[in-house]
Amino acid sequence: MEPTPKELIVGEAGDARPIAALVRAETVPGNHLPGIVWLGGYRSDMTGSKAEALCRHAGEQGRASLRFDYSGHGASGGDFRAGTISRWLEESLAVFDHFSSGPQILVGSSMGAWIALRLVQELRRKGAGDRVAGLVLIAPAPDFTHELMEPELTEAQRQALAQNGFFEEPTPYGPDPNVFTRALFEDGRTNRVLEGLLETGAPVHIIQGMADPDVPWQHALKLVEHLPSDNVTLTLIRDGDHRLSRDEDISRILAAVDSIPPAP
């Protein structure tokens, strides 16, 4: 069964934006396999190879699956430059609540891992932490604005943020430059997760390439330090890049998903 396109309006009045999602319902009732929720990276969309592979894998197992585009990304509406971690987290929570039920595995890639960790925090705060059966974090970039980008900003970039509210830089992942706004940096500070113990209440699998030019593998080690010692698995791939989209990388991702036990 192919996933069904859905749309959810998040926000009110002038801030409303249509969020596009692809939803696949569980097809083997009673198998107790948690669903899979994909959380993409910065400027990525839900049609990437990892998201497609996870959706296909879920369908083969009869699991539910859910993937969507943040505002300003892919098929969703909204202004990309208005995007912040808080804004994309609000959309993720709304989509999660509206289109999924029961335990879910959060699979977050790069910035999506940051969103996944914040999503767990918000669900636990609401008393819904049992909805998270596990996390699979791929090249995780929590707190990337503060931890990875701010220390490396050039003077020209700092001036552009102060004077223009944004700066652009070329990216090897597409023809258009990446845009980083002052609002993204300021909001990122309020959403930092690498400051204390990150209680997830569920198994966490981290998959990180050691040849990643965007997120150093040491950042994954730092994340592990903030997670409880039980049920945390870190896989370092010596020749793995940031995308981790090779067949062997995707096989590792699917194996991590399958290692998370069914709901009781």
Rank of each mutant, 00 (worst) to 15 (best):
P170A: 15
T145E: 11
G165V: 10
L153V: 01
F180W: 15
P151N: 06
E150H: 12
D187Y: 00
E169A: 14
F166Y: 15
G201F: 09
I207N: 01
D187W: 00
P151M: 08
G201C: 08
E195K: 11
P175T: 05
F185S: 03
N191G: 04
P216H: 06
R192N: 01
D143K: 10
A162L: 14
E199I: 00
D143A: 12
N178D: 09
M149K: 08
T200R: 06
R158A: 02
V215W: 10
P170Q: 05
D214Q: 11
T200M: 06
I206T: 07
L161A: 03
E195I: 04
T190I: 04
D214F: 11
E155P: 00
I207H: 05
A183S: 10
Q157A: 12
R182S: 11
Q159L: 11
H146M: 06
A141S: 13
P140F: 10
A183N: 10
N178Y: 08
P216C: 03
G165Y: 05
F180M: 10
F144C: 04
E168H: 02
L148A: 08
Q163N: 09
P177Y: 12
V215L: 12
G201I: 03
L148C: 04
A160S: 12
P172R: 08
V193Q: 13
N178S: 05
L148S: 09
G174M: 12
F144M: 14
P177R: 11
E152C: 01
D176W: 14
V215D: 05
P203W: 01
E168D: 07
E186A: 14
L148I: 07
Q163I: 09
G188T: 01
F144S: 10
E199A: 07
W217T: 02
Y173S: 11
D214N: 13
T181L: 10
A160W: 01
P172V: 06
